[in-house]
């Protein structure tokens, strides 16, 4: 009986690690096949390509106008970063520190964009943007990407600010700090780690955010992920390797952001923090 349960436990453990291993092997295969193909001369019905070249990258770069796409991506990401900090941080502070009538409603309003499919509000949002002449413009893309980022920042920061003891602020006031001095010498240093973590997560998300950009962008202001979608969608028009080269460029861009992100935040935060939103 005891030995049986021991064996069962061991088998269970092996099964779980096998599952994890199988997942990681598949994941590696998916990523690696893109990388290998982008570097191969021609690859058909063999284990590896016939030869290796980097020429697909230059072809991909020029035929997809990736320089422009990258610039747009960075512009959008940068603007979203600044915008969500300016809008999100003060709101998070107010929500963490004050109770007021209708707070639940406000919270619900901020949760909805996170639990409603992006298509549901993306399509009406796009038509509103077109109405105001912003559809298909860079500003429109930025506004659309800012939409889910602001609530995202708020829900990461609210619990973070809540756990900073408000008596710290009171103490600073008692010792004669004015509002500006309080903000500069007490709040910013205390909040900075949380703000940084939140913004880095916004960066990672914005680079990968597909739907809203897809619905609002015009031909001149696609971000990398949307450009990649169109090229995969229109596969056959160009060699698969150029698409893969572009995919690798996209991958490198988001991995760089991910590496930056991991310097500031625990990986579970990248997905885990938003759970707090629904927990309220």
């Amino acid at each position: 009986m005891k030995i049986e349960s021991e064996i069962a436990g061991k088998l269970w453990r092996i099964a779980i690690w096998a599952l994890v291993g199988f997942f990681i092997i598949n994941l590696t295969g998916i990523i690696l096949s893109v990388v290998v193909d982008s570097l191969g001369t021609s690859w058909f019905a063999t284990w590896l390509p016939n030869g290796f070249t980097t020429s697909w990258y230059s072809e991909s770069w020029s035929s997809f106008q990736l320089g422009g796409v990258l610039v747009v991506t960075l512009e959008v990401a940068g603007a979203v970063l600044i915008g969500s900090a300016l809008l999100g941080v003060p709101a998070a502070y107010a929500l963490a520190r004050r109770d007021f009538p209708g707070k639940k409603l406000v919270m619900l309003l901020f949760v909805l964009p996170l639990i409603i499919p992006p298509f549901t509000y993306g399509i009406p949002l796009a038509s509103v943007l077109y109405q105001f002449g912003l559809g298909g413009t860079l500003t429109g893309v930025i506004l659309a990407n800012l939409m889910p980022s602001v609530p995202f920042v708020i829900f990461i920061l609210v619990p973070f600010i809540e756990q900073i003891d408000p008596r710290v602020e009171a103490a600073a006031r008692v010792f004669g700090a004015g509002t500006w001095a309080l903000f500069r010498t007490v709040m910013v240093p205390l909040l900075l780690p949380g703000i940084l973590a939140a913004l880095v997560l916004v960066l990672v998300r914005t680079i990968g955010l597909f739907e809203l950009t897809f619905l609002t962008a015009g031909p001149g202001n696609q971000t990398l992920v949307v450009a990649l979608y169109y090229s995969v969608f229109a596969a056959g028009m160009r060699a698969n390797q150029t698409i893969d080269a572009m995919a690798v460029i996209y991958m490198v861009t988001s991995l760089v952001c991910l590496i930056i992100a991991l310097r500031f935040v625990d990986p579970t935060q990248i997905v885990g923090r938003s759970k707090k939103s629904a927990a309220h």
Partner: peptide, 13 residues
Amino acid sequence: TLGTVLTAQGMLN
């Protein structure tokens, strides 16, 4: 982080 578009392209390969 990579998102569904890149996953899709990788899966096709």
